[in-house]
């Protein structure tokens, strides 16, 4: 089967996405999918190391370049009259890098001593 790939999805050109690779599960206390939920805060510290805070965990990872870039495709059905339905794939984005969080996350606990001193 031939796959047609639309090289550009929109006017702005090809978007570059990234992968976040976690070693573990993301879970929710509420039932239902995770879709639309806030997972956590991702930021880079001043050394450029990606840091991800999920709930009470802080994850420190690193950015890696994928050996083979990946493309994110969107499948589209194109219905033309009299002809077979045509399926086309549109490249939504291309992925060249990923953020890898392999290490064990650290729990976030407030320091007791410091806090006591601050309260009058």
């Amino acid at each position: 089967m031939q796959v047609f790939i639309q090289p550009f999805s929109n006017e702005e050109g090809l978007q570059e996405w990234g992968i976040i690779e976690l070693q573990g599960d993301l879970d929710s206390k509420e039932s239902g999918s995770l879709a639309g939920k806030l997972v956590g805060d991702l930021f880079y510290n001043k050394d450029g190391i990606p840091t991800f805070i999920i709930g009470h965990h802080i994850l420190v990872g690193k950015a890696e370049k994928l050996e083979k870039p990946l493309a994110v495709l969107e499948k589209r059905h194109i219905q033309t009259k009299g002809k077979d339905d045509k399926t086309e794939y549109v490249v939504r984005a291309i992925v060249k890098r990923k953020l890898c969080f392999r290490d064990r996350p650290k729990p976030i606990v407030g320091s007791m001593q410091k806090v006591v001193n601050k309260t009058p």
Partner: peptide, 14 residues
């Protein structure tokens, strides 16, 4: 939501 999602780390090689 902030409280909702949490991470469960799995030990082992990726």
């Amino acid at each position: 939501s902030a409280a909702a999602v949490y991470f469960r780390f799995k030990e082992g090689f990726s």
